[in-house]
Design a protein around this nucleic acid. Structure first.
Lengths: 343, 343
DNA sequence: CATGCATGCTCAATCGATGTAGCATCGTTG
DNA sequence: CAACGATGCTACATCGATTGAGCATGCATG
C-alpha cells in the first residue's frame, strides 16, 4: 500500500483535541467514550469537545483503547467460503447477532486451506478476540489446541472438533430423510426401486461421513443396499465433481444424492453435457439454494437451520458449557415438486 | 459474553516469556517479530524463546504492536450483503488479493443500512485501517467525507461517490447489451417485437439509473420506446419484488429485464404462482448465478468482472490517483440458450 | 597492554486511551 | 469563619510491543 502523504494530516488523537479545546486529554477521553457524566464534566465542555471531534474527523484508536481496557468484546469467526447460501447466511447472521449483543464481529475467509485456517485463527486471537467461532474448518482441533494454550475460548460450528464445544446440523437424519425422499420420487416417477448415487465431499470429513450413514440407513430401511462404486467423494468444488463423474456412466432413471450446492453446480454441468437434462434423472441436494430448488430434476433440498445454529452458538458464548458438549441441530427438509419434466 | 474464568491463565505477554526464558522483553520481541538477526540475538536464544512461545500459546497482541508501529497494513472493506454470488466473490477475492499483498483484510457486512454503513466505516478506521473499500454503499459520500476528515483513504467499489475514486461496472453497456439480447430472443422465440419490463432496484441508485439508461438505449436502437408503467423499482429484496409485481398483469410473450439475482428470486416466485412457469416468458438478469442461469426462461445474464474490478481497486490502493477518477469496468454478457421450453 | 571492533544482549521512551487519585474552587452550614 | 461537600477539572501510571541508544564482554591487532 502507498505510504500516506506527508502533507495529509495524521489522524487526530485526544491530545490534539485537548489542545484545540484548551482542556486535558482525560476530559476529552471521558467525553468521547461516554463516561463524562460519571466524571462530572460540564455539559458545556462536553458539547464543545464533541463538536471539535466531529470537525476533526476523530475516531478513537481502538488499538490504544483496547490495549488499556480489560475486555475487547471482539468475537472472531472463520468461514471456509462465501460462494454459497449456507456460509453466506452464517456470516451475515453472525454479524447481526453479534452486534445485537454489543460485540464486535470479525470474520475471515479461509478457502478450506488448513494452514490459512490456522493463521487466520492466530490473527484473530492477536486482535484480542475473546472467543473464536471456527466454522467448517478442515482441522478444528489444531485451532482448538492453540486457543486452549492461548486461553481463548473456541466454538466449532458446522464441523465438530474434539477439544471445544461443537454445534453441527443433524446430518444423519437430514441425509436419511432426503435419501428416502429421492428414493420415493424415483419409484413414483419412474416406477423403479434402486440404489442412488452419492456425490461430493470427502470421506474423512465428519459431515460427509454422517450423511453417508444417513444415506445408507434410508436404503436399508427399504431393503436396498448401497453400491460402493456409486459413492463418489472427490471433494467439494464443481470441477472436481465433473472430473470424478467423467469416468462414470449414468443410466436413465438414476437418482443422485448431491452433498453440497457447490458440488451440484458441477453435477448439473455434467448432466447437461451428457444430455441428461430432462426428465430421466432425479436428485436431491444437501444445502439449500433458491435457484437450484427450481431445477427440474430436483426433488428436495436440505436447509440447515442457520438461525437455530447461531442461536445455540451465542448461548454457548454467553454461558460457557462445562465439559465438551456437541449439539445437533435438526435440518429442514424442503421437498420440491417442480413442474412436470416428462410432459 | 461470559467473563473469562479466573483460573484460566491470561494470555502470555513478552514479559512472561522473558521471565521464563531468563532474558529481556526486548529480546523476546525481536525474536518473535523476526528482527532478531538485525539485532544480533544469538541463534541459540532465538530457538529457546521460540520454543517457549509455542509452548505457552503466545500470539502477539496486535493492539499493542500496532499502537507502536507507524503502519497497520490493515485494509478494510464494507459490503452490503453476502446473499449473492457477486458480493460473495468480491469479499473472497478481496481477502485473497489483500493477503497476497501482505495486507490484513477486514470485512464488515452492512445490510444496506446507511447508518450501519457509516458506523462500520468508523469502526474500521478505529481499527487503524489505512484504506477503506466502500462497496455498494447507499451513501458513499458520507463515508468519503468522514474518511477525508480522518485522513484515511477511501475507494468506492460497485457504486460511485463524488469525493473518492470509484470503480464501477459499465452498467450502461451491460444493460444495453442484455436488453438487446432479450428483445432479440423474444422476436426469435415468439415472433413479436415489444418493449420489456424493468424490475428491481431503486431509482436514485446510480447503477439502477445507468442500467435503465442502457435499457432505454437498446429499445431506442430498434425503434421502440419504453413504457413508464413497466418500470418497477421497489428495491432489491425478493418480497418487495413480489409485492410490487402483485399489482401487475403480465401478458404471455413478455420479456423481463431483472436488475439483480436477489430480485430474480422474487420474480421467479411470482411467475410460478402466476403459472407463467413454462415457455411464455423470457428474461435476462443483471448479475450472474450458476443455478439461475439454468432457468428455462433465462436468455442471458450479466456477469460483473470481479477480478478486473479488484485488480483496479488494488492498483488504486498501491498508487493513489491524483484527482477524482472514476473507472468503468466492462461486464461480461453470458448469453444462454437453455433447452427448448416450448417442446 | 591499550585500542578497536564485533557480539549479544538490556534499558527506557514511546504509541493513544483509560481511570484512579487528587487538586482547586465555590457554596452551604453549624 | 472553619469545616464540609459538591463541582469540575488535571496528573499520572498503565496496557504490551517496538526500537534507538547504550552497556559489557571477548577477541584481535598494533
Amino acid at each position: 500500500m502507498a505510504e500516506s502523504d506527508g502533507n495529509s494530516a495524521k489522524r487526530p488523537t485526544i491530545y490534539d483535541l485537548a489542545e484545540i479545546a484548551g482542556t486535558s486529554p482525560s476530559a476529552v477521553s471521558s467525553i468521547l467514550n461516554g463516561t463524562w457524566k460519571k466524571r462530572r464534566i460540564s455539559e458545556k465542555l462536553a458539547e464543545r469537545v464533541s463538536r471539535i471531534a466531529t470537525e476533526q474527523g476523530y475516531a478513537v484508536n481502538l488499538q490504544a483503547s483496547l490495549l488499556r481496557r480489560e475486555r475487547s468484546r471482539i468475537i472472531g469467526m472463520i468461514v471456509p467460503k462465501y460462494d454459497n447460501r449456507y456460509f453466506g447466511a452464517i456470516a451475515e447472521q453472525f454479524e447481526i447477532m453479534a452486534r445485537a449483543r454489543g460485540l464486535f464481529p470479525v470474520i475471515t475467509c479461509t478457502q478450506r486451506d488448513p494452514d490459512l485456517e490456522f493463521e487466520a485463527a492466530r490473527e484473530l486471537i492477536s486482535y484480542q478476540a475473546e472467543c473464536l467461532i471456527v466454522t467448517g474448518a478442515t482441522d478444528p482441533d489444531r485451532i482448538g489446541e492453540f486457543c486452549a494454550a492461548a486461553g481463548v475460548r473456541a466454538i466449532n460450528l458446522d464441523l465438530p472438533g474434539s477439544n471445544a464445544p461443537s454445534i453441527v446440523s443433524d446430518n444423519f437424519t437430514g441425509a436419511r430423510d432426503l435419501t428416502a425422499l429421492i428414493l420415493s420420487r424415483i419409484e413414483r416417477d419412474f416406477g423403479v426401486i434402486q440404489p442412488l448415487w452419492f456425490i461430493g465431499g470427502r470421506g474423512r470429513d465428519h459431515n460427509t461421513a454422517e450423511r453417508l450413514r444417513g444415506f445408507k440407513a434410508a436404503h436399508r430401511q427399504i431393503g436396498l443396499s448401497v453400491l460402493p462404486d456409486r459413492i463418489i467423494m472427490p471433494g467439494y468444488s464443481p470441477h472436481k465433481a465433473i472430473a470424478a463423474m467423467g469416468t462414470k456412466t449414468l443410466a436413465d432413471r438414476s437418482g443422485l444424492f448431491v452433498n453440497s450446492t457447490i458440488t451440484l453446480e458441477g453435477v448439473i454441468h455434467w448432466l447437461n453435457e451428457q444430455r441428461h437434462g430432462s426428465g430421466d434423472i432425479r436428485l436431491g441436494c444437501f444445502d439449500w439454494d433458491p435457484f437450484a430448488a427450481l431445477l427440474p430434476q430436483n426433488v428436495g433440498m436440505i436447509e440447515q437451520n442457520v438461525p437455530a445454529m447461531l442461536e445455540a452458538t451465542f448461548e454457548l458464548v454467553e454461558t460457557p458449557p462445562t465439559g465438551n458438549v456437541r449439539l445437533k441441530i435438526p435440518c429442514i427438509l424442503r421437498g420440491i415438486d417442480n413442474y412436470p419434466v416428462n410432459p
